[in-house]
Simulated assay, not measured.
Amino acid sequence: MRSVDLSAASWRKSSYSNSDGGACVEISDGFAGVVPVRDSKNLTGPALTFAADGWSAFVSAVRNGELSA
């Protein structure tokens, strides 16, 4: 995957995040073809970028209960 400059990224927490600081992710919108994802507990840590269609398929699978823990 290509390198993406995330220095100006605006991050938002997952709607599944809870208020007690559990396992949360943040994503950033507005990057053509990719979705940057990072750990909300490590704001200066690395971010992963996923192809937008792959991320969409993952989110749909989570919503539909197709993934088990």
Rank of each mutant, 00 (worst) to 15 (best):
Ser7Asp: 14
Ala32Thr: 15
Ser56Asn: 14
Cys24Gly: 08
Asp5Leu: 02
Asp53Ser: 10
Trp11Cys: 01
Val35Met: 14
Arg63Trp: 00
Ala57Leu: 07
Thr49Leu: 06
Ser15Pro: 05
Ala47Asp: 10
Cys24Leu: 10
Asp20Ser: 09
Asn18Arg: 14
Leu48Val: 14
Gly33Gln: 09
Gly30Gln: 05
Ser40Ala: 09
Ser14Asp: 07
Ala51Tyr: 06
Val4Pro: 00
Asn64Lys: 10
Trp11Ala: 01
Met1Tyr: 13
Val4Trp: 02
Ser17Ala: 14
Tyr16Gln: 08
Leu6Lys: 00
Ala8Cys: 06
Ser19Thr: 11
Ser19Trp: 05
Val62Met: 09
Lys41Ala: 15
Lys41His: 13
Ser60Pro: 02
Gly54Thr: 11
Gly54Tyr: 04
Ala51His: 11
Trp55Ala: 01
Met1Lys: 10
Trp55Arg: 02
Lys41Arg: 15
Val34Ser: 04
Gly33Asp: 11
Asn18Gln: 15
Arg12Ala: 14
Ser40Lys: 03
Ala32Phe: 13
Gly45Asp: 13
Thr44Arg: 12
Pro46Tyr: 09
Glu26His: 04
Ala23Lys: 11
Trp11Val: 02
Pro46Thr: 12
Asp39Ala: 05
Gly30Ile: 04
Gly22Gln: 07
Gly21Glu: 06
Lys13Met: 06
Ala52Gly: 09
Glu66Lys: 14
Asn42Met: 07
Ala9Asn: 00
Gly30His: 04
Asp5Thr: 04
Arg12Thr: 14
Ala52Val: 12
Pro46Leu: 09
Ala69Lys: 12
Ser40Pro: 04
Ala69Glu: 15
Ser15Thr: 15
Leu67Met: 13
Phe50Glu: 04
Val59Gly: 00
Asn18Met: 09
Trp55Gly: 02
Ala23Thr: 14
Ala57Ser: 13
Gly45His: 12
Phe58Gly: 01
Asp39Tyr: 04
Ile27His: 05
Ser19His: 07
Arg63Met: 02
Thr49Ala: 12
Ala52Asp: 15
Glu26Tyr: 03
Met1His: 12
Gly65Ala: 06
Ser7Trp: 01
Glu66Thr: 07
Asp53Arg: 08
Phe31Cys: 02
Ser40Val: 04
Ser3Gln: 15
Ala47Pro: 06
Ser14Asn: 08
Gly30Leu: 05
Ser17Gly: 07
Phe58Met: 06
Phe58Arg: 01
Cys24Ile: 08
Val62Lys: 02
Ala52Tyr: 08
Gly45Phe: 14
Phe50Gly: 04
Phe50Tyr: 12
Lys41Gly: 15
Asp20Trp: 08
Leu48Ile: 15
Phe31Pro: 00
Lys41Pro: 04
Ala8His: 11
Pro36Asp: 02
Trp11Ile: 00
Thr49Ser: 12
Ser19Asp: 10
Arg2Asn: 07
Phe31Ala: 00
Gly21Ile: 08
Ser10Asn: 09
Ser3Phe: 15
Ser40Asn: 07
Ser14Trp: 05
Ser14Glu: 05
Ala8Phe: 03
Thr49Ile: 13
Asp29Pro: 08
